[in-house]
Design a protein around this nucleic acid. Structure first.
Length: 255
DNA sequence: ATGGTTGCTTAGCAA
């Protein structure tokens, strides 16, 4: 089973590239973030013609997540599905091919100390609580998406430039480490313990040509699935050429 | 050096 996670930075701007990614990799499951559209403008027809079901939680202008799958998904859930409402569309999950798949777009947080930063940390705690409440580390579960956190400096090309940022701040790293400690494995790191491979490069400052990147997009798996992971790669070529997303797809294959 | 680029929406926000 092949799964891809990709922050597309607008599904409508990236549709042609997405269709090429589907054609090139033929994944079984794709988790998409930053759709930047409501369901009414989501390209269901084109994605359906490519052979995929689309499970979508959209939002106008910002955020928005989707799970594409060759198999029909079941038990679809939007957001945290708990008492209080999250006004932002950042979370969708479904049962697919015997596994629970959670597609997540963690808040960026703007700057440490800002209101958005507080929202980010609260959101991450709430996500941890969701795992505690609804999921089991012993069951097959995949958490895929843009976590907007680099776990440590081996995932950062120029750590000194990002030391005080929301992507690398101690509290954010701790919050993500806590989520992993619940019972999730970073399968990319399992395959590439040396680090120095990145999934996101800022559009500005020639970050991509300079390879000034961070690995902030993750495929996290419970033990039963992580054990079956045979490869994990970043499709760096997808960041090249005309009108790329600022993120590259992350791809994992499970036996 | 508080810059710079992209996308959505149309001047300003978010990343």
């Amino acid at each position: 089973m092949k799964i891809i996670t990709w922050n597309v930075n607008s599904i409508r701007s990236r549709l042609e590239r997405l269709l090429r990614v589907l054609d090139r990799h033929r994944p079984d499951i794709v988790c998409l973030q930053e759709l930047k559209t409501l369901e009414d403008k989501f390209p269901f027809d084109e994605i359906g013609s490519a052979g995929y079901h689309a499970t979508v939680f959209g939002q106008k202008t910002y955020n928005g997540v989707a799970v594409l799958s060759k198999s029909e998904p079941s038990d679809i859930r939007h957001g945290f599905d708990d008492a209080s409402d999250d006004p932002q569309a950042r979370l969708i999950s479904a049962q697919i091919d015997g596994a629970r798949v959670i597609c997540a777009y963690f808040p960026n947080g703007d700057t440490v100390g800002s209101e958005k930063w507080t929202y980010k940390l609260e959101w991450m705690k709430r996500f941890h609580a969701l795992l505690e409440r609804d999921c089991y580390p012993s069951q097959p579960l995949l958490v895929c998406g843009d976590t907007n956190v680099a776990l440590d400096d081996s995932d950062v090309a120029n750590p000194q430039n990002w030391a005080g940022s929301v992507l690398c701040a101690r509290e954010a790293r701790k919050a993500l480490a806590d989520i992993l400690d619940w019972g999730l494995n970073d399968v990319f790191r399992q395959k590439h313990p040396e680090g120095r491979l990145y999934s996101w490069w800022d559009y500005r400052q020639l970050a991509f040509p300079k390879n000034d990147g961070l690995r902030i997009d993750h495929i996290l798996a419970t033990d039963v699935l992580a054990k079956k992971c045979v490869s994990a790669v970043i499709d760096r070529d997808e960041r090249k050429g005309q009108q790329p997303s600022d993120h590259a797809p992350v791809i994992a294959v499970f036996e």
